[in-house]
C-alpha cells in the first residue's frame, strides 16, 4: 500500500476510532490484496510507511468477498463488480484476505 494511502488510513482511524473503520480493498491479485490487508491490520510489512509497526487491526474486506457482497444492492454489485468476478481468482483472494483478517483483525 502506498505511503499516502497508509497516511490516510491512519488519519481516518485516529479521527473515528479503529472499531468504526472498515477498509474495502479491490486489488486484482491475491498477493497484493493480502499485502494491503496486512498493512491495515498487522502494520506495513515493508516497514516503509506510516503504518510500519502500527497494528491497527481494522476490519478489512475485498470487494469480491461474500461479506461485502451481502451488504450491497445486488443490481449495483452486478453493474460494478459482476464482470470482475469472472476475471479475478475470487477463491484465492477470499482465502488470502480472510485469513489475514482472522489472524490480525481486532474487531471481527
Amino acid at each position: 500500500m502506498d505511503l499516502e494511502n497508509q497516511r490516510r488510513v491512519k488519519e481516518i482511524t485516529d479521527k473515528y476510532g479503529a472499531e468504526n473503520v472498515v477498509v474495502v480493498i479491490g486489488g486484482a491479485e491475491a498477493e497484493s490484496a493480502g499485502l494491503a490487508a496486512e498493512t491495515v491490520t498487522a502494520g506495513d510489512p515493508t516497514y516503509a510507511g506510516p503504518l510500519a509497526g502500527v497494528p491497527l487491526g481494522l476490519k478489512v474486506y475485498h470487494a469480491v468477498e461474500p461479506e461485502f457482497k451481502a451488504e450491497v444492492d445486488a443490481e449495483v454489485y452486478e453493474d460494478q463488480i459482476g464482470m470482475m468476478e469472472m476475471v479475478l481468482d475470487v477463491d484465492e483472494i477470499v482465502e488470502e484476505v480472510s485469513s489475514i483478517r482472522n489472524e490480525h483483525g481486532k474487531f471481527n
Binding site: S32, M84, M86, V87
Partner: peptide, 19 residues
C-alpha cells in the same frame, strides 16, 4: 504481485463479451 496485465485485460474483454 501485479499479475499478468495483458491477460487481465483480455479476461475483462472476454467477460464483458459473456455478459
Amino acid at each position: 504481485g501485479a499479475g499478468d496485465v495483458p491477460s487481465a485485460n483480455y479476461k475483462m474483454i472476454a467477460a464483458l463479451g459473456v455478459k
